[in-house]
């Protein structure tokens, strides 16, 4: 018996194979997001499908020998099914949101193509496409333009960058790619100063200047997947107990675990930069009930005392 997913796929597979004569088995499986074994199973079902009547001339023809011998798919006798089905609402929405995400990260030069693709999709899918919006904090389109150009030219850039601890730095970077994580755009690049892969939040880059020097040959940058922070060796786990009013912390930052009490919550988070944690504790003020390990709080207290001294002097 054929499943719903399979029939849905078959209805797209038939026109696809007619538009791509002699399609490769592996490549086709990839297009449809299935294994090649599943694709062969699909073809075996198609073999029994066709015009009402079910006689030899009525069925869709697939050269199964070519599939088995050379991994090529040849399909014929299905001219009546030469267009794919309309998008389902979920497909349309998923693709439109994905495209809007691309739009948020794309350099200015790519924007017109994305906008017109969106407009065409919206026309093909009706009002549904309007029902999802995406906003990513990814700096200016001009900055992304400059970085995209530097990536494709493989040249070094000198950044002016405010790091998470609010220090202004000027790293020399071989840019590799632009990525998005948790709603923020980043430049992933090889830091020549640190001799290591680093990520730079786009909205914290105040300027980028190509130096004219060629980038060194770089390996593939590490995957920046969910939990990327955990891969950073310098990251340490910190536990904050906060008053309930500060519950936004659990939604705002990548948190490993949350425990809730009557009027407090406890969050475990990974901190790669002590300066960032110091800033967070200063920002939260009285909302912080306790901090583990203790030295983290010590640093924030000292910073607060230093700031108070400045007020008393003034």
């Amino acid at each position: 018996m054929t499943s719903v997913d399979q029939v849905s796929r078959l209805l797209a597979l038939v026109p696809y194979l007619q538009h791509h004569p002699d399609a490769e088995l592996e490549a086709t499986a990839q297009v449809f997001g299935v294994s090649s074994r599943q694709l062969i199973a699909d073809l075996n079902v198609l073999w029994y499908c066709g015009l009402p009547g079910g006689g030899p001339g009525d069925l869709i023809e697939i050269d199964m020998d070519a599939v088995n011998d050379s991994g090529r798919i040849r399909l014929s006798n299905a001219e009546y099914l030469d267009r794919p089905m309309r998008f389902t609402p979920d497909e349309a929405l998923s693709l439109v949101v994905a495209l809007r995400t691309v739009r948020e990260l794309a350099p200015a030069s790519a924007a017109p193509g994305i906008d017109s693709a969106l407009a065409k999709l919206e026309q093909a899918t009706g009002t549904l496409a309007a029902t999802a919006k995406v906003a990513v904090a990814s700096g200016s389109a001009e900055l992304r333009d400059l970085l995209a150009q530097a990536i494709s030219d493989a040249v070094l850039v000198r950044l002016e960058y405010t790091d998470a601890g609010q220090d202004l730095t000027t790293p020399l970077v071989a840019p590799a790619r632009l990525i998005v994580r948790d709603g923020f755009g980043y430049l992933q690049g090889w830091s020549l100063d640190r001799q290591a892969w680093r990520t730079y939040r786009l909205d914290r880059i105040s300027s980028a200047e190509p130096t004219g020097d060629a980038s060194p040959a770089l390996p593939e940058p590490p995957e920046f997947g969910p939990g990327w922070l955990e891969q950073r060796p310098e990251a340490a786990e910190v536990t904050l107990r906060l008053r309930s009013e500060a519950a936004w912390v659990a939604e705002y930052y990548p948190i490993r675990k949350v425990r809730r009490g009557e009027d407090w919550l406890e969050v475990d988070l990974l901190v790669a930069d002590p300066g960032w944690l110091r800033s967070l504790l200063l920002r939260l003020g009285r909302m912080v009930i306790s901090v583990q390990p203790e030295p983290a709080r010590q640093a924030a207290s000292e910073a607060a005392a230093e700031a108070l001294a400045a007020y008393q002097a003034g």
């Binding site: 796929r9 797209a12 297009v31 449809f32 794919p84 979920d90 497909e91 998923s94 693709l95 994905a98």
Partner: peptide, 20 residues
């Protein structure tokens, strides 16, 4: 683009229709 499996499948299937 999608990290969530369900939406990723839907987007792939939508693109497969366009390819078709």
């Amino acid at each position: 683009v999608w990290e969530s499996a369900t939406q990723a499948e839907q987007a792939v299937s939508a693109l497969a229709k366009l390819r078709a």
